[in-house]
Simulated scan of single mutants.
Amino acid sequence: MKKTFWYPIVFMALLTAIFTFILAYMNYSTADRVAANEEYELQAKILYVFDIPIEDDSVEAVDELFSEKITLEDDVFVYQEGDSVEGYAFPVAGAGLWGSIVGYVGISEDYETMLGLTFTQQSETPGLGGRIEDEEFLSQFRGLDISESSEEEYVVYSPAPGANVDAIAGATLTSKSVANFMNDDIHEFLQERRGE
């Protein structure tokens, strides 16, 4: 009776230890590859924010293009063509409907035009709020004039007065969240840069 009682416990403990070791080894052995993939994805997204075309999407080509045109200064990506600064990409983040939304907004060197927007993390409902990563939504923010925006209202959804972009139909809460944290973070960035 005693042998029968302990056998399943010892068997499960041994099985758990074996699978834990296997998972730990796989995590350790793929850590560098995962980090490289994450870096590649971020580089590609920052290039997208600045509307820099990627002709060859290999890891090496993207890294070379990124290194040639982009530098990082205090969490802000700076886009340069030769010696001329063309724009800045800074992080924006806030709460969505189901979790945190994190992304980057690109602003022109004169702080008057939004160059682009991308998201690096979001867990919104696929087909609804998750459409914030669709080109149709993101393209609205390319070349958006923010020079005449009322204070802290850089992104305004139709049909509100002064609207400059369309919200995602069926994803009102996600759309409002994105506008709110973008407006807050853009305002904070511009105040810091302009010394206000």
Rank of each mutant, 00 (worst) to 15 (best):
K3M: 04
T4Q: 14
W6D: 03
Y7N: 11
Y7W: 11
P8T: 07
F11Q: 03
M12N: 09
T16Y: 01
A17M: 10
T20M: 05
F21M: 06
F21W: 03
F21V: 10
I22D: 04
I22P: 00
L23V: 13
A24F: 04
Y25N: 14
M26C: 02
N27W: 00
Y28T: 13
S29R: 13
R33L: 15
V34K: 15
A35C: 07
E38G: 10
E38Q: 15
Y40S: 10
Y40T: 09
L42A: 09
Y48P: 00
Y48C: 00
F50P: 11
I52D: 03
I54N: 07
E55T: 15
E55H: 15
D56E: 11
S58A: 03
S58W: 00
S58E: 01
E60Q: 14
D63S: 15
L65R: 04
F66A: 04
S67R: 12
E68H: 10
E68C: 06
E68S: 13
K69M: 03
I70E: 01
I70T: 10
L72P: 01
L72Y: 10
L72F: 09
V78T: 12
E81D: 15
S84F: 11
S84M: 13
V85T: 15
G87F: 09
V92K: 10
A93F: 07
A95L: 12
G96E: 00
L97W: 02
W98C: 03
I101C: 06
I101P: 05
V102P: 01
V102M: 10
V102R: 12
G103S: 08
G103N: 10
G103F: 04
Y104H: 14
V105Q: 03
G106M: 04
Y111S: 08
M114C: 14
G116N: 05
T118V: 15
T118C: 07
F119Q: 07
T120G: 12
T120K: 10
Q122W: 01
S123P: 04
E124A: 11
T125W: 07
P126Q: 09
G127H: 06
G127E: 02
G129W: 04
G129M: 05
G129E: 00
G129I: 07
G129T: 07
R131A: 12
I132F: 06
F137R: 09
F137V: 08
F137I: 06
S139H: 04
S139K: 14
S139M: 08
Q140E: 02
D145Q: 09
I146C: 06
I146R: 09
S147F: 08
S149M: 05
S150P: 04
E151H: 13
E153P: 00
S158N: 13
S158Y: 12
A160W: 02
A160C: 01
G162D: 03
G162N: 11
A163K: 05
A163N: 08
N164P: 03
V165R: 01
D166F: 07
A169Y: 04
S175K: 13
K176G: 05
K176F: 01
K176H: 09
V178M: 08
A179S: 14
F181M: 04
F181L: 02
M182E: 05
N183Y: 05
N183P: 08
D185Y: 06
D185R: 10
I186D: 01
E188P: 02
E188V: 09
F189E: 01
L190R: 10
Q191R: 14
Q191M: 15
E192C: 00
E192V: 12
R194C: 00
G195Q: 07
G195D: 01
